[in-house]
Design a protein around this nucleic acid. Structure first.
Lengths: 113, 113
DNA sequence: CAGTATCCCTTGAGATACTG
DNA sequence: CAGTATCTCAAGGGATACTG
């Protein structure tokens, strides 16, 4: 994965903090996915995909994988047939809740279309 | 520009608000750029570029252009030689300040490297 | 049902050169 | 100094098929 991070050569402390956050949650879909999980608390892959709608299978899988590996969401696998997988926010992920709330509120306030 | 937006076919109100926000501020660089402008209040193109460091000329120009056209930042052009251009947050852009603060704080709190 | 792998094309984004 | 344009190439991401 080399260095896809922005500001990898962080010289300014303040900016680094912002960059750290962005490296976790930036991306076209991450917050939207998180928002859906946050909304339902626990959600299965299929429902998540259906709810988001305009996301492809591959995109969703990839993003979920990253979120899991970043420790933001938890993946619970039920070994049954057919398989069932549930996603939920970890405690760490839940610390993003206030941020998601603000982003939501900001959109609600400013969207005029 | 067609429809690069996520969730263009918005069926769920709540999700739409979030999507609206993401359509404004998502992107690898936008919030980092905004954070720098917010930090300095008023900043020239050159200084902005130098401060961000790891961004290319093209990227920065493009992102700034989008931010201006979204009404988030203001561009003040001084017609002199050599030219001077200053960027600052608009009133609308300033409403993002609390969000930026939270993102910053979140990064500060969680960055352990 | 959930997830991976492959194919393939579009887009993003860097380097560079040029203009006002 | 600030910004645009072109050329180029790698990566992102869609469609589809396959596996557990």
């Amino acid at each position: 994965m080399e260095n896809k991070d922005i500001l990898g050569d962080c010289s300014n402390g303040a900016i680094c903090h912002m960059a750290y956050t962005m490296n976790r949650i930036a991306g076209k879909w991450k917050l939207v996915i998180l928002w859906h999980i946050y909304d339902k608390e626990v959600i299965r892959y299929g429902e998540l995909k259906r709810n988001i709608g305009k996301i492809t299978h591959k995109m969703l899988s990839n993003q979920l994988k990253e979120l899991v590996s970043d420790g933001i969401i938890h993946k619970e696998i039920y070994h049954q047939v057919p398989p069932k997988v549930e996603y939920s926010l970890t405690e760490y992920g839940k610390t993003l809740a206030p941020i998601m709330d603000m982003l939501y509120e900001w959109g609600k306030k400013n969207r005029k279309d």
